[in-house]
Computed example of a mutant assay.
Amino acid sequence: MATINVSRARARGLPGAGRPPGPERRSASLSRRVRRNVSGYFFLAGAIICFALWSWYPMIHEILLSFQHLNLVGQSEGWGGWRNYEHMLNDPGFWTSVRVTLVFTGLALVFGYAVPFLLAVGLNEFRHASWYFRLLVYLPVMLPPVAAAFLWSKWFYAPDNSGLFNSVLHDLHLPTSTWLQSPNNTFVILCMVIFSTWSNMGSGVLIYMAALQGIPGELYEAAELDGAGIAKRVWHVTIPQTRLILSLMLLLQVVATMQTFTESLVLTNGANGTGTLVYLLYQDATNFNNFGGSAAIGTVLLVVLGVFSGAYLWLSRRGEE
């Protein structure tokens, strides 16, 4: 086709016919594209600057600090090599924090990931006053996290009968619990996960409900005609149709729960071996002035989450192919 067009151009005697576009024409075309998209480049530059100042620069600075020897006021006294990482790996508190973080993340995948989706499926069935239930579910997200944690620790998780949970158990003639003061470390972490699920599930529920609204109703009607119950409709229709959102929310769930901090700080203050990695990072920097060790913990967490995110996205793309 290109040969035919060139031949026609030659036959008509058009200037420059048959010659490839020169540097002048390419430069003019490029300048036109730049002028046409200058507003887009302007907004893109603003986003890049914001990411560079508040995301990329802190990450690079943290990595550099993890290889330096810092004094008590955080000033560098020279390169320390891998010494901060050696001290971190030899610290028993680090491995305790790793275990707490992994247990918290695993329990959060059971509750914090599944409960919002199931709740969204249930709320999606309401035809009347659905806005009221959406607002009710989203209300905890609007509370300041520290204030919400204090509310749960003083009112819900109070170890005596003044706490809401113990009051209900007492009225039902069931044994009460010390909750956050329990000697069972895993049970305390579960209490932290329950609070985290309650305080953060509102955003997930709204995202899932928005995804559910995009599922064609004909699929549910066909499933009902085939005699499928609620469980089968969710398994064969809802989950496949929302697979992309579920995959994205799983990634965000793991990344968020691996960085949990408020629960350890406010609910337990790290007692009974309930401090997470971010809590240990905070303690090293504020209480012990170990800024290099704190930066090393942050760098390890950054690398682990980066590798996990990259591997998860790669596997998701291969699964879609």
Rank of each mutant, 00 (worst) to 15 (best):
V98D: 06
T3F: 03
L281T: 02
T262R: 01
W179S: 09
V303R: 05
E24R: 14
L118M: 15
A311S: 12
V6R: 05
H170D: 13
A228S: 05
L119H: 02
V121I: 15
S7H: 06
A256L: 05
M59E: 08
L252W: 03
S76K: 09
P145M: 10
T262L: 07
I60G: 11
F51A: 11
W54Q: 01
V304A: 09
S196I: 02
V307N: 03
I189E: 03
Q241S: 14
P23E: 10
S31Y: 14
T238W: 00
N200S: 14
Q213P: 00
L313C: 04
Q213C: 11
N289S: 12
P144V: 09
L102G: 08
M59I: 13
P140I: 04
V266R: 03
S309L: 05
A231Q: 04
L251S: 09
S309D: 01
P15T: 00
L265R: 12
F195C: 02
I63K: 03
N290L: 08
A271W: 10
Y282L: 07
V146A: 08
L143P: 01
L281G: 01
L164Y: 12
L281P: 00
Q241P: 00
S294T: 02
I230D: 04
S294M: 00
N84H: 02
Q283F: 12
Y85L: 11
F288K: 10
W131H: 07
L246K: 02
P21F: 02
V34P: 05
A210C: 04
V34L: 15
S196C: 06
N185P: 11
T276M: 04
P20Q: 06
T197V: 13
S31M: 14
N84Q: 08
A17N: 02
P159D: 07
V6F: 01
R10T: 06
S309G: 05
T178N: 10
Y57H: 11
A231R: 01
Y157N: 05
R35D: 05
Y157W: 03
S66Y: 07
M142C: 11
L281K: 00
L30Q: 13
M142I: 11
P15Y: 03
G310R: 03
G80A: 15
I189F: 07
I297D: 01
L277S: 01
N161G: 04
A52L: 07
V73H: 09
